[in-house]
């Protein structure tokens, strides 16, 4: 498990994922990584409205998945709800304006509307069938389909693949 001195988010990202795979070994005895009913995602609308979603609520939305393979050659299956689908359920969202996303560690990034249309990223809450703790960069991870679109392998898109997603601000 060699770690690069130059820790790119990309590498950071995949190394983290690798670590995540090992942790489930002693997670079995532990309770849920993130409380299912605790607010996981808060959506702030342009008019000041606030919509809060828990993991349970998100799990009730139509399930989608994206497959990724790490540089080490491991396969990952990310499961969650499509961001586009989520926005459909929110009045006022999906209006073509970019989304401001914020993470639990106070990182933030702008997701252009074209990305949502073209690449259909996934708000993932499950990796290989397991929920993710905050420690493991969960509970929510915005996953782009990197394997399906080679043009996504740039810093710009790695930056947009935000982990510990907690807030979405709609303009």
């Amino acid at each position: 498990m060699a770690k690069d001195s130059s820790m790119s988010p990309h590498r950071h990202f995949f190394v983290a994922l690798f670590l995540i795979l090992l942790y489930p070994l002693h997670v079995n005895a532990e309770p849920a990584p993130y409380p299912l009913d605790r607010p996981a995602l808060t959506v702030y609308l342009a008019d000041g409205q606030r919509l809060v979603f828990s993991l349970t609520q998100l799990q009730q939305m139509p399930l989608a998945s994206i497959r990724l393979s790490t540089p080490e050659g491991l396969q990952q299956q990310w499961q969650g709800v499509r961001l586009r689908k989520l926005l459909e359920l929110i009045p006022g969202a999906g209006n073509g304006r970019p989304l401001h996303t914020t993470a639990l560690n106070h990182y933030s990034v702008l997701i252009p509307y074209e990305d949502i249309q073209r690449y259909d990223p996934l708000v993932a809450y499950q990796l290989d069938g397991r929920l993710m703790s905050i420690r493991d960069y969960g509970p929510l991870y915005l996953i782009y389909p990197f394997d399906d679109h080679p043009e996504l392998r740039q810093q710009m898109f790695y930056n947009r693949s935000i982990w510990q997603l907690s807030e979405i601000h709609v303009e």
Binding site: H10, R11, H106, Q155
Partner: peptide
Amino acid sequence: ALPTLHSELWQAYQIHMEMDR
């Protein structure tokens, strides 16, 4: 071919900020 970003400083900064929070 693949992007590499030296984020050590950012990581250190983040830890610093998170410690405060």
